[in-house]
Write a protein that binds this DNA or RNA. Structure first.
Lengths: 170, 170
DNA sequence: CACCTCGGTTCAATGAGTGAACCGAGGGTG
DNA sequence: CACCCTCGGTTCACTCATTGAACCGAGGTG
């Protein structure tokens, strides 16, 4: 199957990775999966993404082995990151940090701390106190001092303004 | 100016970062800038990207402060990464490594070593021997043992099959 | 039984990506 | 000087992905 938005002519593994995570919305969907937003409707209202796109992107993530679809009740399903998906955390985190440093005027919009020791993570994702890079499950996030571009009022955005452990349901 | 492919409703710095580097082709263009491919025509033949897109993406990178346009001869220009652009290396590198690990069947297609000591970089970009993450300028890249999806024969692809220091002109 | 929510699919309109053609500035050759 | 080539684009017509609204079936609730 020739994918629509593929990079057929490219030999590089970066191109192959981008065929999975490089499409519009996909990295934002992954961010939400790390944040513990896993239900279709929650993702849709939080991202303001067209339902058709969300559906297509989740399916792509599933068959690339990045996420898994799980039924948690009859007719209710959620998408959770696989081991391969969890390994995308450094990339998602560092890209967010890079955006904070270079594209956002005032202070940090969102902070990440090592849940074990409470230390803010360095911009490479490491915990300065422990000298290791904590996995997402050991990270707590909360809003920073910077003013976001827009203030969203959907249920998920509001919930994420309280300190929240990554990968735990919102 | 409302950008065409923006994420207007999103407050997250990740969305802002993706408005700069998240469009189709942009991350591959950045990879080439790290590899020392800086001339318009070289980028075009190496990436097989439509000229109009390449032109638009380079302009976007320039006015986001990620790259700079420099004339190296009358009528000849090149694009080089700024300080902010160089800080994208960990992201480009780790995404490439993630692709190698999870989406490429056989061995690594491309290797990266710390030029100082010759040690292969770990998948987080660190040099296991030195305990630090070398900047791109101290990294040498060469093809690995894996067979790429396609074998390209353009001038740039051929040149990059010899060991090559990042950021030095091909 | 009526109505609501969840997790989608369908469809028409829009907007971005594509590839081919064109173009002007500059350099090299005869 | 005339001719031709390269470089770094722009223009344009066509295609294909994205968008937003409407629709839908399964399951739960009053």
């Amino acid at each position: 199957m020739t994918l629509p938005r593929s990079y057929d002519g490219q030999a590089c593994p970066l191109a192959i990775a981008l065929e999975v995570v490089g499409e519009r919305w996909t990295l934002l969907i992954l961010r939400d999966l790390f944040f513990g937003v896993t239900r279709f409707t929650d993702l849709q209202v939080h991202l303001d993404v067209p339902r058709a796109i969300l559906s297509a992107r989740l399916a792509r993530l599933v068959d690339a082995g990045v996420a898994e679809r799980r039924a948690y009740a009859p007719g209710r399903s959620e998408h959770v990151l696989t081991e391969a998906g969890l390994e995308l955390w450094p990339i998602v985190h560092q890209l967010m940090q890079w955006g904070e440093r270079h594209l956002v005027a005032d202070g940090p919009v969102r902070l990440f701390a090592h849940a074990g020791c409470g230390t803010e993570l360095a911009h490479d994702g490491g915990c300065p106190a422990c000298g290791t890079a904590p996995p997402p499950v050991d990270i707590e996030t909360r809003p920073g001092t910077g003013v976001p571009r827009v203030v969203r009022t959907d249920r998920i955005s509001v919930a994420l303004r309280r300190p929240h452990r990554l990968l735990t349901p919102v």
